[in-house]
Design a protein around this nucleic acid. Sequence first.
DNA 1: AATCTTTTTGCAACAAAGTTGCATGTGATT
DNA 2: AATCACATGCAACTTTGTTGCAAAAAGATT
Lengths: 142, 142
Amino acid sequence: MFLMMEAQIDEILRKNQLSVTGSRKRILELFLMSNGALAHGDIEKKTGEKFDRVTVYRTLQTFLEKGIIHSIPTPDNSVLYALCKDDCSEGHHHDNHVHFICSICGKTICLADVTVPEVKLPVGFLPHEYQMVVTGLCKECR
Amino acid sequence: MFLMMEAQIDEILRKNQLSVTGSRKRILELFLMSNGALAHGDIEKKTGEKFDRVTVYRTLQTFLEKGIIHSIPTPDNSVLYALCKDDCSEGHHHDNHVHFICSICGKTICLADVTVPEVKLPVGFLPHEYQMVVTGLCKECR
DNA sequence: AATCTTTTTGCAACAAAGTTGCATGTGATT
DNA sequence: AATCACATGCAACTTTGTTGCAAAAAGATT
């Protein structure tokens, strides 16, 4: 079970031409275990003393650039990150699913099956990417 | 012309039971002049030496609470504010229009005529508010 | 217009969040 | 195992946001 996760982590890092280091493994593990999204602060707390603050910043930055994770805009303007689906490629994500944020427990959930609808824009606007965030109550909190 | 703006500013503040002060007038003026959205930093720069940083924070906070402005979540997780339409009431906005962010000039535009479509969520989720941000090229930059 | 009351502002000090340069340590390649 | 590139930790710093309190300005009252 744990070995499987290890292998999965290694594969993700290798696939993105990243060297397999302690912090990267740990942070990826955190993302794989939580099926929601994580704030920078969450990660810092959970890695505890193990890694420097700066390392966490740089690791997240690297993962973002490689398209391993994506960032989610939230209504209260905090920074959240979540794992991308497999078909995210470097630089150019199609992270086109809706994100749900529960106003009680604060969890952010990727609704991988709900794609962002495309809306008609006024003449002249050339859309490139659509992002959608829904707030409300999740299954557990309602 | 300038007098009209003055009057408009006064009216907005009065309507929201706020005393008419220098900083509030100036910051509202900035919003009225830019038809897009402003970051906190923009406002600080444009008000220059005139007001304290803290005052800008508190003024924006007050405007938010009164429903004069709303905040916009952006893909890069910066904080943006824009004027609400008239029908925004205290505490509870129906700020249900799509926001557009130009990736060239960086401007954020409220597409007041484009309402956020409601999507079907998985069973168990109780939606409360929908937010949508579209990035791409605006009229001027394409 | 002068006074009183309430609200707003500026200052200072602080806390939190994020960045940068550089020396050291570790993973990958041969 | 030796080398080399890359990742990490540390320190110092910048930027961003917050809090308490005294001074100042706005609004109300006479």
